[in-house]
Protein backbone atom coordinates (compact mmCIF):
# COMPACT_ATOMS: atom_id res chain seq x y z
CA UNK A 1 0.00 0.00 0.00
CA UNK A 2 2.73 2.44 0.95
CA UNK A 3 4.78 3.42 -2.04
CA UNK A 4 8.26 4.37 -1.00
CA UNK A 5 9.46 4.73 -4.57
CA UNK A 6 7.71 8.05 -4.53
CA UNK A 7 10.19 9.29 -1.97
CA UNK A 8 13.19 8.03 -3.90
CA UNK A 9 11.85 9.80 -6.94
CA UNK A 10 11.71 13.14 -5.14
CA UNK A 11 14.87 12.60 -3.15
CA UNK A 12 16.49 15.83 -4.23
CA UNK A 13 13.46 18.01 -3.54
CA UNK A 14 13.11 16.45 -0.10
CA UNK A 15 16.76 17.00 0.77
CA UNK A 16 16.50 20.61 -0.39
CA UNK A 17 13.45 21.00 1.85
CA UNK A 18 15.29 19.53 4.83
CA UNK A 19 18.20 21.86 4.18
CA UNK A 20 15.88 24.87 4.01
CA UNK A 21 14.22 23.86 7.30
CA UNK A 22 17.63 23.51 8.94
CA UNK A 23 18.75 26.87 7.55
CA UNK A 24 15.59 28.69 8.62
CA UNK A 25 15.49 27.17 12.10
CA UNK A 26 19.19 27.50 12.83
CA UNK A 27 19.29 31.06 11.49
CA UNK A 28 16.06 32.12 13.18
CA UNK A 29 17.04 30.55 16.50
CA UNK A 30 20.57 32.04 16.54
CA UNK A 31 19.30 35.49 15.64
CA UNK A 32 16.46 35.09 18.12
CA UNK A 33 18.89 34.14 20.91
CA UNK A 34 21.06 37.20 20.25
CA UNK A 35 18.04 39.47 20.06
CA UNK A 36 16.54 37.88 23.18
CA UNK A 37 19.78 38.48 25.07
CA UNK A 38 19.82 42.09 23.85
CA UNK A 39 16.20 42.53 24.97
CA UNK A 40 17.09 41.09 28.36
CA UNK A 41 20.02 43.51 28.59
CA UNK A 42 17.82 46.50 27.76
CA UNK A 43 15.36 45.45 30.41
CA UNK A 44 18.15 45.16 32.98
CA UNK A 45 19.23 48.72 32.15
CA UNK A 46 15.78 49.66 33.37
CA UNK A 47 14.31 53.12 33.19
CA UNK A 48 10.78 54.37 32.67
CA UNK A 49 10.92 53.74 28.92
CA UNK A 50 12.75 50.50 28.49
CA UNK A 51 10.88 48.29 30.94
CA UNK A 52 7.35 48.99 29.60
CA UNK A 53 8.71 48.78 26.05
CA UNK A 54 10.18 45.38 26.86
CA UNK A 55 6.89 44.13 28.29
CA UNK A 56 4.99 45.46 25.28
CA UNK A 57 7.34 43.63 22.92
CA UNK A 58 6.98 40.38 24.83
CA UNK A 59 3.19 40.66 25.08
CA UNK A 60 2.85 41.49 21.39
CA UNK A 61 5.04 38.71 20.02
CA UNK A 62 3.92 36.05 22.48
CA UNK A 63 0.27 37.04 22.40
CA UNK A 64 -0.31 36.79 18.65
CA UNK A 65 0.08 33.82 16.30
CA UNK A 66 3.34 33.59 14.37
CA UNK A 67 1.24 33.22 11.23
CA UNK A 68 -0.32 36.67 11.74
CA UNK A 69 3.11 38.22 12.25
CA UNK A 70 4.43 36.57 9.10
CA UNK A 71 1.40 37.58 7.02
CA UNK A 72 1.65 41.19 8.17
CA UNK A 73 5.20 41.48 6.90
CA UNK A 74 4.88 39.20 3.87
CA UNK A 75 1.61 40.52 2.45
CA UNK A 76 1.57 43.93 4.15
CA UNK A 77 5.24 44.73 3.64
CA UNK A 78 5.05 45.61 -0.07
CA UNK A 79 2.43 48.29 0.74
CA UNK A 80 5.00 50.14 2.83
CA UNK A 81 7.92 49.49 0.50
CA UNK A 82 9.18 46.38 2.26
CA UNK A 83 9.53 43.84 -0.54
CA UNK A 84 11.26 41.01 1.21
CA UNK A 85 11.59 37.50 -0.11
CA UNK A 86 9.61 34.79 1.69
CA UNK A 87 12.85 33.37 3.09
CA UNK A 88 13.89 36.68 4.60
CA UNK A 89 10.44 37.31 6.07
CA UNK A 90 10.52 33.80 7.52
CA UNK A 91 13.97 34.14 9.03
CA UNK A 92 13.36 37.55 10.56
CA UNK A 93 9.85 36.58 11.67
CA UNK A 94 11.09 33.47 13.42
CA UNK A 95 13.88 35.47 15.10
CA UNK A 96 11.58 38.27 16.35
CA UNK A 97 9.05 35.73 17.58
CA UNK A 98 11.64 33.53 19.29
CA UNK A 99 13.40 36.51 20.88
CA UNK A 100 10.34 37.32 23.01
CA UNK A 101 10.41 33.79 24.47
CA UNK A 102 14.19 33.69 24.86
CA UNK A 103 14.24 37.06 26.65
CA UNK A 104 11.67 35.82 29.16
CA UNK A 105 13.71 32.66 29.74
CA UNK A 106 16.79 34.77 30.48
CA UNK A 107 14.78 36.97 32.80
CA UNK A 108 13.50 33.99 34.79
CA UNK A 109 17.03 32.57 34.98
CA UNK A 110 18.42 35.87 36.20
CA UNK A 111 15.71 36.36 38.79
CA UNK A 112 16.31 32.91 40.25
CA UNK A 113 19.84 33.87 41.31
CA UNK A 114 19.84 35.15 44.92
CA UNK A 115 20.58 38.88 45.24
CA UNK A 116 23.22 38.22 47.87
CA UNK A 117 25.55 36.75 45.27
CA UNK A 118 25.56 40.06 43.40
CA UNK A 119 26.05 41.96 46.65
CA UNK A 120 29.05 39.88 47.64
CA UNK A 121 30.55 40.40 44.16
CA UNK A 122 30.12 44.13 44.48
CA UNK A 123 31.49 44.11 48.01
CA UNK A 124 34.63 42.33 46.83
CA UNK A 125 35.10 45.00 44.17
CA UNK A 126 33.92 43.27 40.99
CA UNK A 127 32.60 45.64 38.33
CA UNK A 128 29.04 45.11 37.03
CA UNK A 129 30.49 43.68 33.81
CA UNK A 130 32.69 41.22 35.70
CA UNK A 131 29.79 40.29 37.96
CA UNK A 132 27.66 39.45 34.94
CA UNK A 133 30.40 37.52 33.15
CA UNK A 134 31.77 35.55 36.08
CA UNK A 135 28.90 35.22 38.56
CA UNK A 136 25.59 35.59 36.72
CA UNK A 137 26.10 34.34 33.18
CA UNK A 138 27.42 30.84 33.99
CA UNK A 139 24.54 30.27 36.38
CA UNK A 140 21.97 31.74 34.01
CA UNK A 141 23.23 29.42 31.32
CA UNK A 142 22.85 26.40 33.56
CA UNK A 143 19.39 27.42 34.75
CA UNK A 144 18.15 28.48 31.32
CA UNK A 145 19.45 25.55 29.34
CA UNK A 146 16.47 23.24 29.73
CA UNK A 147 13.88 25.90 28.79
CA UNK A 148 16.13 27.13 25.97
CA UNK A 149 16.29 23.65 24.49
CA UNK A 150 12.54 23.32 24.85
CA UNK A 151 12.05 26.61 23.07
CA UNK A 152 14.48 25.55 20.34
CA UNK A 153 12.40 22.44 19.66
CA UNK A 154 9.27 24.61 19.55
CA UNK A 155 10.86 26.99 17.04
CA UNK A 156 12.04 24.16 14.78
CA UNK A 157 8.44 22.96 14.75
CA UNK A 158 7.11 26.48 14.19
CA UNK A 159 9.36 26.83 11.17
CA UNK A 160 6.85 24.56 9.40
CA UNK A 161 4.50 27.56 9.41
CA UNK A 162 6.85 29.24 6.93
CA UNK A 163 5.48 26.82 4.33
CA UNK A 164 2.28 28.88 4.32
CA UNK A 165 4.15 31.98 3.13
CA UNK A 166 5.70 29.84 0.36
CA UNK A 167 9.12 29.18 1.87
CA UNK A 168 10.19 25.91 0.24
CA UNK A 169 11.06 24.11 3.45
CA UNK A 170 10.23 20.55 4.41
CA UNK A 171 6.48 20.96 4.98
CA UNK A 172 6.09 22.97 1.80
CA UNK A 173 7.98 20.37 -0.24
CA UNK A 174 5.89 17.55 1.21
CA UNK A 175 2.67 19.35 0.31
CA UNK A 176 3.90 19.93 -3.23
CA UNK A 177 4.85 16.30 -3.69
CA UNK A 178 1.52 15.18 -2.22
CA UNK A 179 -0.51 17.36 -4.56
CA UNK A 180 1.51 16.44 -7.62
CA UNK A 181 1.42 12.71 -7.01
CA UNK A 182 -2.10 12.49 -5.54
CA UNK A 183 -0.71 10.37 -2.70
CA UNK A 184 -1.37 11.87 0.67
CA UNK A 185 -0.04 9.18 2.99
CA UNK A 186 3.65 8.68 2.20
CA UNK A 187 4.89 12.29 1.97
CA UNK A 188 3.07 13.33 5.13
CA UNK A 189 4.08 10.28 7.13
CA UNK A 190 7.70 10.90 6.25
CA UNK A 191 7.25 14.59 7.03
CA UNK A 192 6.00 13.84 10.53
CA UNK A 193 8.75 11.28 11.15
CA UNK A 194 11.42 13.75 10.03
CA UNK A 195 10.31 16.45 12.50
CA UNK A 196 9.91 13.86 15.23
CA UNK A 197 13.49 12.72 14.69
CA UNK A 198 14.79 16.30 14.75
CA UNK A 199 12.92 17.02 17.99
CA UNK A 200 14.27 13.88 19.66
CA UNK A 201 17.84 14.64 18.62
CA UNK A 202 17.66 18.28 19.78
CA UNK A 203 16.12 17.28 23.12
CA UNK A 204 18.75 14.57 23.71
CA UNK A 205 21.59 16.94 22.88
CA UNK A 206 20.08 19.49 25.24
CA UNK A 207 19.86 16.97 28.06
CA UNK A 208 23.55 16.14 27.63
CA UNK A 209 24.53 19.80 27.63
CA UNK A 210 22.44 20.38 30.71
CA UNK A 211 24.18 17.59 32.62
CA UNK A 212 27.48 19.19 31.65
CA UNK A 213 26.56 22.69 32.83
CA UNK A 214 24.80 21.78 36.07
CA UNK A 215 27.43 19.46 37.52
CA UNK A 216 27.83 21.70 40.55
CA UNK A 217 24.19 21.37 41.57
CA UNK A 218 23.82 17.63 41.68
CA UNK A 219 26.45 16.40 44.04
Amino acid sequence: MIDFNLLAEHREAILAGVWMTVKMSAGGISLGLLLGLALHGLRQLGGIWLVPLYHAYVALFRGTPLLVQLFLVFYGGPYIGLEWSAERVGLVGLALYGAAYFAEIFRAGREAIPRGQIESARDLGLSPGQTFRVVLWPQMLARCLAPLVGQTVILVKESSVLSIITVAELTNVAMTIATQSYSMLEPYAVLALAYWAIAIVVAATGARLERHFTQYQCR
Binding site: G116, S120, D123, L124, G125, L126, Y216
Partner: peptide, 29 residues
Protein backbone atom coordinates in the same frame (compact mmCIF):
# COMPACT_ATOMS: atom_id res chain seq x y z
CA UNK B 1 38.76 48.12 48.64
CA UNK B 2 39.77 48.29 52.30
CA UNK B 3 36.38 47.02 53.52
CA UNK B 4 34.99 43.52 53.07
CA UNK B 5 31.73 42.09 54.32
CA UNK B 6 30.77 38.61 55.47
CA UNK B 7 27.07 37.93 54.94
CA UNK B 8 24.47 36.01 56.88
CA UNK B 9 23.77 33.82 53.84
CA UNK B 10 27.50 33.38 52.97
CA UNK B 11 26.79 34.39 49.34
CA UNK B 12 29.38 32.11 47.83
CA UNK B 13 29.01 31.53 44.09
CA UNK B 14 27.62 28.01 43.76
CA UNK B 15 28.99 27.29 40.28
CA UNK B 16 32.64 27.78 41.27
CA UNK B 17 34.82 25.47 43.29
CA UNK B 18 35.86 26.74 46.71
CA UNK B 19 39.36 27.64 45.52
CA UNK B 20 37.95 29.58 42.54
CA UNK B 21 35.47 31.39 44.78
CA UNK B 22 38.39 32.69 46.80
CA UNK B 23 40.80 33.29 43.92
CA UNK B 24 38.42 34.88 41.39
CA UNK B 25 38.08 38.32 43.04
CA UNK B 26 41.84 38.49 43.43
CA UNK B 27 42.34 37.88 39.72
CA UNK B 28 39.48 40.07 38.53
CA UNK B 29 39.85 43.05 40.83
Amino acid sequence: TDVCMVFQQFNLWPHMRVLDNVAAPLRLV
